[in-house]
Design a protein around this nucleic acid. Structure first.
Length: 294
DNA sequence: ACTATTTGACCACC
DNA sequence: GGTGGTCAAATAGT
C-alpha cells in the first residue's frame, strides 16, 4: 500500500476508535436515564452505532495490515477450491480450511455493508445460540471467497460474535468501500428531537453504487448536511454528535440525499436489527443485505 | 420463473 | 465417535 494512503487509513481508524469511545461514554450516560419516554430504545440505537464503528474499525484494520492492499488479493489454501463436487456422490467431500485469513469481532449488528448469503446454520455444543454461516453473494459470479460466521452471545447483551474468513475479492467491493459507507453515513446524518418510531429503510443500491464509483473522499469533520423537517435541530457536526453528548437528542435519523443522481430517500438505516431476538434462529439471511449490484 | 433460505445429511478433523 | 463446516434438495419469497 502507498505509505500516504496507509497513513490516512490509520488516521481514519483512530477517528473511528475515538468516535466509538465517545459513543460508549454517551451510552453510559443515557442508559442511566432508563428509556424514560420512548418506545424506541436509545440503548439499542447506541449499540447499533457502536456495532457499526466496531465493524468498520475491524475491516479497516485488516485492510491496513494486509500486504495485499485489503480486499484485492488473497491466498487461499489449495485444498479449498470452493468448487462444487463433480458428482453427487461426492457431496460434502471437501477439505477444511486450517490456515485462512480470519478476523473476529463482537458487534451489536451483523450488518457490515457487504452482501452475504446464508448457506448453513448449526447448533453448537454448549451454546444456546446456533452458529450461522454466510458466504459472499458474489461467490460464484466473481469468485469471491469471503465468508463469515455469526453467533449470538449468550450474555444477554444482544451482541454477535462475528468471524470473518477470507477477504472480499469481488469487483464491487473495494478497499474504499468502508470509508465510503462511513462517508455516506456521515453525509446524511442529523439529529432530531422529534419522537418517532424506528422503521427500516435501505439506501437505493443504484445510488450507492454511483457514490462508490465516484471514489471521492472528503474530510470526516466536514459539516453535516441537514435535510430538515420542521422539528429538526440545527445542523450538527459529525464530531459534535459523536464526540460529545448532545443533550435532548431522543433519536437519530438518516436522510439520504444523493448529490449525483436525482434521487433521494430518507428513513432509519438498519435500525430494526437490534430488537429482534429471533434473528439467528429464524435466519439472519432474511435481512436485506443485498446492497451491491452484480 | 427465479432467487434466497432452511435444514438434514455428509464428511474432515480431532 | 463427536463436533463443526459445507452441500444441496426442499421450501419460501418475490
Amino acid at each position: 500500500m502507498i505509505p500516504e494512503m496507509e497513513q490516512n487509513n490509520k488516521r481514519l481508524i483512530e477517528t473511528l476508535i475515538r468516535g466509538r469511545d465517545s459513543t460508549t461514554r454517551l451510552q453510559d450516560l443515557l442508559c442511566r436515564k432508563e428509556n424514560l419516554n420512548g418506545s424506541v430504545s436509545v440503548e439499542d440505537l447506541l449499540a447499533e452505532i457502536l456495532g457499526s464503528f466496531s465493524s468498520g474499525i475491524s475491516m479497516l484494520n485488516s485492510s491496513v495490515s494486509s500486504e495485499n492492499h485489503g480486499f484485492l488479493v488473497e491466498k487461499m489454501p489449495e485444498v479449498y477450491s470452493g468448487k462444487k463436487p463433480a458428482v453427487k456422490e461426492r457431496r460434502g467431500c471437501y477439505k477444511r480450511r486450517r490456515t485462512i485469513d480470519t478476523s473476529v469481532i463482537t458487534s451489536a449488528t451483523i450488518e457490515d455493508g457487504f452482501a452475504w448469503r446464508k448457506y448453513g446454520q448449526k447448533e453448537i455444543l454448549n451454546s444456546k445460540s446456533p452458529r450461522c454461516y454466510f458466504r459472499c453473494t458474489h461467490k460464484y459470479v466473481h469468485g469471491c471467497k469471503a465468508q463469515k460466521q455469526v453467533q449470538k452471545l449468550e450474555d444477554g447483551s444482544n451482541m454477535y460474535h462475528i468471524t470473518y474468513l477470507g477477504k472480499h475479492t469481488c469487483p464491487s467491493i473495494t478497499h474504499h468501500e468502508v470509508v465510503l459507507n462511513f462517508q455516506d453515513f456521515k453525509n446524511t446524518y442529523h439529529v432530531s428531537n422529534s419522537p418517532s418510531t424506528i422503521t427500516n429503510a435501505h439506501i437505493d443500491p443504484s445510488v450507492k453504487q454511483e457514490v462508490d464509483s465516484k471514489g471521492q473522499s472528503t474530510d470526516v469533520s466536514d459539516i453535516i448536511s441537514s435535510a430538515n423537517d420542521e422539528n429538526t435541530s440545527p445542523p450538527l457536526r459529525w464530531d459534535e454528535i459523536l464526540g460529545s453528548c448532545h443533550e435532548g437528542a431522543s433519536y437519530m435519523r438518516f436522510d439520504h440525499e444523493d448529490s449525483c443522481a436525482s434521487t433521494s430517500s430518507h428513513g432509519y438505516m438498519y435500525m430494526d436489527y437490534l430488537n429482534n431476538d429471533d434473528l439467528l434462529s429464524d435466519g439472519i439471511g432474511l435481512l436485506d443485505q443485498n446492497v451491491f449490484l452484480d
